[in-house]
Each structure stands twice: as C-alpha cells, then as structure tokens.
C-alpha cells in the first residue's frame, strides 16, 4: 500500500481491551452485596445437589425426636408436630423448590423468547396473534390464573411447573419482542442482511444474542418470583403433597402452631424461602449493573 491513509489517525488510540474479570471484580467491590449473593447462590446449589446426603435425619421419618421441640443442639431447627427434624426437612426441600422454579423459568424462557423474537422481528400477523395470546394471559391476576390451571389440570408437581411457566411466558415474550424490535433496523442488522444472512439467521444469529444480557437479568429476577409462586401454591394445598418436604407446605403446616407460639415450624422454612428469593433478586440486580451500568435503579 503506497497510500498512507492506510495508517490510522494516530490521536485516537482506543483503550486497551478491558478484562471481563476485572470488570466483574469492580462490580463486586462497588456492591459487596452482589458478592455475597453469589456466595449464597453457590450455597443453594450445594444444598440442592447434596442436601439429602448431608442432613442428620430422614426428612420424612416421624419421631426423629419428641414432637414440637424448640431448637436444640440435637435438632438445630427443632422438631415439628410429628416429631420430624425441621433442619433436615428445610435442607432437603431445597432441591424440589429449585427444581420447580428452574424448570418453569427454563420453559418460559425458551418458549417466551422465541415467540417474542419472532413477533418483534416479523411483526404483522405473527405479532398480532402472539400479542393477543400474551395479553390474554396477562389479563388474569397471574397467581390466580396459576391456581385455576392447577385446579383444572390436576393437582400435581408437573402441573405446578406448567402453570408457573405459563404465567411467566408473557414477561419473556414481551421483553424479547421489545429488545428485538429496537434492533430490527439497526445498522449492524442491515449489514448482516447485506452480508448474505437469511432472515432467520439475522434474527437468531445477530439480533437474539444481543438481547440476551437484559433477558438474563430478567431470568434471575424471575427465578425468585417463580420460587415464591410455587411455594404460594403449595401453601394453599396445591401441587406438592405432605409429607414431602417443601418450604411452602412446611410453612402451611406450621401456620396452625404460630398462635400458640411454636415459631420454629414457620420461621425456618420461611427464612429459607426468603433467602433463596433474596439471592436471585440480588444476583439479578448485580447482573443488571454488569450488563447495563446506565440503567441502574
């Protein structure tokens, strides 16, 4: 090349590539809660994976100790009205509670974001039909709709998963639709068309990966909500049946004893539930900082 235009303008040297981990560390330092929440998240995973092998008592065995014993060195969280060990039950319940919410969120993420992406990208009839469908779901108070679905489809854990997935579907669909449609005519998308990408490849190869960061935030915040929702359903007697250990049902069983002062039946499963939801919400907030520092709220 003879032309020296091949040398770039010297004055504007771009910053060196910033390490991802460095950025992550910065976020952690800025907001220590995010660091704590990641630690709690790992704790939850360990409890879900290895809980049943770690606990001192069989979670469904009655008479592990005397009934209604307050917390003691032998029974850290006390015992319930059937003499079952509350600590063992709380730990073992983690797996079921997380399983329900993870599968529900995964289902709604997959279906919701595909529906939303298609309707955001193609518009027209696809958009109108999908939009009408989502509007109809959103026309119900969501928890009430979940109650209705489980009541009609049958009282089982799978149906709790489906119901939770259905009521979360619109969030993903709407979000994906919005994120796709703002990028539909972006320069890089036009450029992708000019580079010979087919329409579907433009959508799923170029646009969709760019919508993932905000959707990840949504997933994390949504996980907490899905856990609450599933626990709420079992609290009113839907889905999980006794004696299966599950946080919602444990709180429901303990509710009768709160007015006579046996607080540990409610407080420990309730706290576990709260901490799990709190963890996902904090991670969601932390991810939001990571993904989009401007939109911090």
């Amino acid at each position: 090349m003879a032309s020296s235009l091949a040398t770039p303008e010297a004055s504007t040297a771009a910053p060196a590539r910033e390490g991802y981990w460095q950025h992550l560390r910065y976020i952690m330092a800025e907001n220590p809660l995010t660091g704590i929440s990641f630690a709690m998240f790992i704790g939850l995973i360990i409890m879900a994976l290895f809980g049943p092998y770690l606990v001192p008592f069989d979670p469904v065995a009655t008479g592990a100790g005397p009934a209604l014993m307050p917390p003691s060195p032998a029974h850290w969280f006390g015992t319930d009205h059937l003499g079952r060990d509350v600590f063992s039950r709380v730990v073992v319940a983690t797996r079921l509670d997380l399983m329900i919410s993870v599968s529900a969120v995964a289902l709604s993420f997959v279906f919701g974001s595909v529906i939303g992406s298609l309707s955001g990208y193609f518009g027209g009839w696809t958009d109108r039909i999908a939009g009408r469908l989502m509007d109809t779901i959103m026309a119900f108070p969501l928890f009430v709709l979940a109650m209705g679905i489980v009541a009609a489809a049958g009282n089982s854990v799978e149906n709790i998963v489906y119901a939770t997935a259905i009521i979360n579907l619109p969030f993903y669909a709407r979000m994906a639709r919005a994120e796709v449609s703002i990028r539909r005519n972006a320069g890089f998308v036009q450029a992708a068309r000019l580079s010979g990408n087919s329409e579907l490849r433009v959508l799923f190869g170029h646009i969709f990966p760019n919508t993932l960061p905000p959707i990840m935030v949504q997933i994390s915040l949504n996980m907490g909500w899905a856990i609450l929702n599933a626990a709420g359903l079992s609290f009113i007697g839907l889905g999980v049946q006794p004696p299966t250990p599950e946080w919602g049902i444990m709180v429901a069983e303990g509710a009768n004893f709160i007015i006579s002062g046996e607080w540990w039946l409610v407080v420990f499963p309730g706290m576990a539930l709260m901490l799990a939801v709190f963890t996902f919400n904090l991670i969601g907030d932390g991810l939001r900082d990571l993904v989009d520092p401007q939109r911090r709220t």
Partner: peptide
C-alpha cells in the same frame, strides 16, 4: 425494595402474627 419482593406474603403475615399477637 429488595427485601419487599423477596418476602413470601404468607410468611410475613405469620411472622407479624407471632410478634404482634402472640
């Protein structure tokens, strides 16, 4: 804001009952 969305309503209700009633 963060605590509020993390609290299961049925649990908050029972906790309030324990403190303010019992």
């Amino acid at each position: 804001v963060t605590a509020g969305v993390s609290l299961p309503t049925f649990f908050t209700g029972l906790a309030l009952l324990y403190v303010f009633y019992y």
